[in-house]
């Protein structure tokens, strides 16, 4: 048995035991193929959750790890392919203005924006958009605008009724 296989098995046991203790694994799956002399890569990712700067940095770090893990040769997945698509539960939140301190105010603000269908305002507060703009994460990538109501913390019913536990995003 090759040393890599042994290491992989040990890693699997390690992950298995940690999963038992803590829960599900976060990370990503990178698939790539060549079509018409063009290399395409697709990444399905599940990044760290929760609000706050630390968690935001953690998400960025997760993306870097996933891209690095999917590298072919020297280059990571983002540059070793002609086109790279990242999709998944990225868990990026909305950063509200500083004057909105209380949670209820934040939720109210978000719900009002959704009611008024001010999608661009919501997108401006999106951490991912800001991160792309400031080149903090996924430099060179683009993301389409989300011109639809947020789907996080929606009640289990038809329509868009948000739970007041956390702000929609």
């Amino acid at each position: 048995m090759h040393i890599n296989d042994i290491l992989y098995q040990k890693m699997q046991i390690f992950i298995f035991s940690f999963t038992l203790l803590f829960g599900q694994i976060q990370g990503g799956v990178v698939a790539s193929f060549t079509l018409r002399e063009t290399r395409l890569a697709f990444i399905s990712a599940h990044l760290a959750a929760h609000e706050g700067q630390n968690y935001y940095n953690q998400r960025n770090q997760n993306i870097a790890s996933i891209l690095n893990g999917g590298k072919a040769g020297k280059y990571d997945a983002s540059i070793s392919n002609h086109h790279c698509f990242l999709l998944g539960d990225l868990n990026y939140r909305l950063k509200y203005p500083a004057e909105l301190n209380e949670k209820m105010l934040v939720v109210k603000k978000a719900v009002d924006l959704v009611k008024d269908e001010k999608w661009h305002d919501l997108n401006d507060m999106d951490e991912l958009h800001k991160g792309l703009k400031n080149e903090e994460v996924l430099v060179g990538f683009k993301t389409p605008l989300c011109l639809f109501p947020p789907t996080f913390k929606v009640q289990r019913a038809s329509g868009y009724h948000y739970l007041s536990q956390r702000s929609p995003r």
Binding site: I15, F18, T19, L21, F22, G23, Q24, I25, Q26, G27, G28, V29, V30, A31, S32, F33, T34, R39, H46, L47, A48, A49, Q61, N62, S65, I66, N68, G69, G70, A72
Partner: peptide, 12 residues
């Protein structure tokens, strides 16, 4: 040249 790789970044 289809390739698949998986990366674990942590425990959720």
């Amino acid at each position: 040249d289809v390739e698949c790789k998986a990366v674990s970044t942590g425990i959720a």
